[in-house]
Structures are given as C-alpha cells and as structure tokens.
Design a protein around this nucleic acid. Structure first.
Lengths: 135, 135
DNA sequence: TATTCAATTGCAACAACGATGCAATTGAAT
DNA sequence: ATTCAATTGCATCGTTGTTGCAATTGAATA
C-alpha cells in the first residue's frame, strides 16, 4: 500500500512530514524512534512537527507507539496481520536496539485479583535478535 | 522486615532518604512514582537525591522500576514471593493510576523468530482495578 | 488556473525528567 | 572524639513532551 493511499483512506492531507514518516516506516521492518526518523535528514522537519505528526498518525490508528523498558519510544506501522493491534507483543534487541512487532498473538494466563478488568496488555520481550546472537 | 535490616543486609548505609523511600514502599501495597514519593514531604530531599537513591536501591536489587505505557515510571519493592523478579507482571489501573505487582508468574507462548533469544519479559496489563470497576 | 480557508508547519518557549560535577555534610568504623 | 568514604544539595545541562501563535500550504471550489 502506498503512502498516499494510506493518507487518503484516513482523510489526512498529503503533507511532507506524513509522507516522509510513513515512507520510512514502510521501508524498515523495524520500529523507529523519533531520532531514527531524523537521522537521514536532520533538518527536513522541525522537532515539533515530527512530534505532532506522529501523534496524529497514532490517533488515526495508522501507527502505534512502543514504550521500552528504558523509557525510549519507537513507532511502527499498524500492519494488516495485526488483527488486534493491542495484543501483539514486541521484541527489543538489547545489543542492536532494534524493535520488532512479533507476529502471532501472545497467549498468557495471568491471574488477576478478583474484580479486576483487563483492557490492554503490553508485552516487551528483551533479548538478542538472530543477527546479534551470532556475533 | 524492617528498613534497617534491609539496608544492612545489602551493605548500605542507613541514610535518611533510603529509610524514607523504603518506609513508604513498605507501607504501600502499590508501586510509587518519584512524585508520589515526594508528595508527603515535598522538600525533605532534593530531587537528585531521590533520583540517585532510587537508582542505588534498584542496582542493589532492593526495588525494581516499572515503566508504563504512558512513559511514567514507578518503583516497587522486590518482595520475597517474586521468585524471579523479572518474570512477574504488573497491573496498571487506568482510572486511579495504581500499579500493582501481580502474584503468580505469567505464562506465555510467543513464537520468536528463529535464532532469537529471550532475556527478559516485561508485561503491563492495563485496565480497571476492583475498586474502580465498582464506581 | 486563481481563490480561499482550514489544516499544517516552524519557531519560541516552558515544564518535566534524566544525568553529572563538585563542594559540603554525614554515617559508622576506629 | 576522630576520620574518611559515602551521601547529599546545589548548580547545571541535555533530552523530550507540550502548547500558543503567526506564517505557510494542500486541496476543494469557483
């Protein structure tokens, strides 16, 4: 799916920053931080514009935020195969810092105290990706 | 277990800030943020002291950090019944903002890509606690 | 194609938080 | 009571989240 189609499908204007962010996220398998998005073209967009654009894209359900245990934040596209975007988990490689959305819904049994209600579950698995294991 | 014993057991000096933080965490069932720790006595300790003390206590394995999906951080005691502190999950009530360590180890089956290695798993369950469900 | 207006952007600015250096203070061992 | 390493407070800096406002721009319409 091309960037323009995604934006049109969500009634969003075809602006530079949106096209850039979605282009990058489509290109990369891995999730990207605000800094990683800036790397290639540091002065292409203002910091605030990037921030606000990411917020808009998230609110419209086009991307999702991933908060890692070290407090950093990355963003990834909501892809088709994430049937329920809230229930897929993420992998964070502690060596190369790459973050991937894991296919396949996570299964778990956690006994909640009586009367508690679950709305969302956030899972981050930390470890080494296949490339970093080899090294 | 009293505060002084905990500190002695870990070869840490018996300082005001440490006693205060551990006292608060022992008193409360729920995890506490830096701000929540400051609330009762805003000027008792410098912001940096609180920050550094929490860091020390975490490094010594006395408390652990919990990073929520909204980027906020809370701290909780490492209690005995957490056999493996890395594997218990946390509950975050979206209404009253309370964070609890969940008893019982979380079970899950997530298929990692080939060659990936798991070192740690962080789970945060968001929802409503029993009290907030009633209201 | 030119006009128009709401949406988007850049800039300034501020708050919150993470982090470090340094000098003054303090816990606890002697 | 003395002593010294450990702890603390203060100053300070960098990063990130957030908002207001004026200038610019996308795209719908004439």
């Amino acid at each position: 799916m091309r960037v323009e189609e995604i934006l049109r499908a969500h009634n969003l204007k075809n602006t530079g920053c949106r096209k850039y962010i979605l282009g990058e996220l489509l290109k990369n398998e891995a999730a990207m931080s605000e800094n990683e998005l800036k790397e290639s073209y540091p002065d292409l967009f203002d910091r605030v514009t990037l921030y606000r654009t990411l917020k808009t894209l998230e609110e419209r359900g086009i991307i999702h935020r991933i908060v890692l245990n070290d407090n950093t934040v990355k963003y990834a596209l909501n892809r088709h195969h994430h049937k329920d975007d809230r229930l897929h988990s993420h992998f964070h490689c502690e060596k190369c810092d790459e973050v991937l959305c894991l296919e396949g819904v996570t299964h778990f049994d956690t006994e909640l105290p009586k009367g508690f209600v679950t709305k969302d579950v956030f899972v981050v698995i930390e470890g080494l990706c296949a490339d970093c294991v080899k090294k």
